[in-house]
């Protein structure tokens, strides 16, 4: 059986790693390649780099950063943020990204999922989904949680799978950055409905939270930022604890 994955997520703005709470209040936490290399050495299974630059200049900086990551890091990495066309996908593939994640662009134009999967394969495409619970329904949000789309979480994730996405990265905007844990029941519902891997994201405050989402939540991987960036726990500590609890991890 494949091991459960621990994936640190690095939000990148103009080449620096930053972290905010609920997508606001950004703090600088270090150089993106250095931090990624450190995580790889500590036992990260993959890395995710999200470009949160809002400018054309920022995008260019990010592409050259992707080249630098590919040259220096010996584990797989996903890049996301602002990807909306086949050309964006091609540019990042050529720069050396193993996977790309798309979010708002797929909500606006779901055909982009089919197009990217057909051209580069499902393994190259992670469908990132942000959602907030409103009156008991998980509603899809875009643009960093600022806009609601007319879609519901489980049906949109399933549609993404059928269109060719290789993985689902679901972030609860109610939990992201709060360190209050993941919504495990929702992850389990996703895992029961879909056959592709599910990555849990947003909300990890302790090792227990990660254990819960990988067991009760049936997630295949856990993505986290805050708890690793600020050195509260190391990736190695997390994986050792997971192993103690009979969860298969790469150590």
């Amino acid at each position: 059986m494949v091991a459960k994955r621990i994936i640190p997520c690095l939000d990148v703005k103009d080449g620096r790693t930053v972290k905010g709470v609920n997508f606001v209040g950004l703090k600088d936490v270090g150089d993106a390649v250095e931090l990624g290399s450190r995580y790889a050495l500590e036992g990260a299974d993959e890395l995710v780099y999200l470009d949160i630059s809002a400018t054309v200049e920022g995008r260019k900086t990010f592409t050259s950063l992707v080249e630098r990551i590919a040259q220096n890091i010996n584990i797989p990495f996903t890049v996301g943020g602002g990807i909306s066309t086949l050309d964006d996908a091609a540019r990042l593939l050529d720069a050396g990204a193993d996977k790309i994640s798309i979010n708002s662009a797929a909500v606006a134009n779901p055909d982009i999922i089919d197009q990217i999967a057909a051209k580069y394969g499902s393994q190259f495409l992670v469908l990132a989904i942000d959602a907030k619970q409103v009156d008991g329904i998980w509603r899809i949000t875009t643009h960093g949680g600022n806009k609601f789309a007319d879609k519901e979480l489980i049906s949109w994730a399933y549609e993404g799978q059928e269109r060719g996405a290789g993985e689902i990265l679901f972030t609860s905007m109610d939990h992201d950055g709060t360190k209050n844990g993941y919504p495990c029941e929702t992850y389990a519902a996703l895992s029961d409905k879909l056959s592709i891997p599910i990555i849990a994201s947003g909300g990890a405050g302790s090792i227990d939270d990660i254990v819960k989402v990988l067991t009760d939540g049936k997630a295949d991987a856990a993505l986290a930022a805050s708890i690793f960036h600020y050195g509260e726990v190391s990736i190695n500590e997390v994986k050792k604890e997971l192993q103690k609890r009979d969860i298969k991890v790469r150590l």
Binding site: V2, A3, D45, Q123, I196, P197, D220
Partner: peptide, 17 residues
């Protein structure tokens, strides 16, 4: 073949022994 009950996913993605 995917097997949700047994936790077998397709694509087979990640680190395996």
């Amino acid at each position: 073949s995917a097997d949700k009950k047994a936790g077998v996913k397709v694509p087979h993605m990640g680190w395996n022994e």
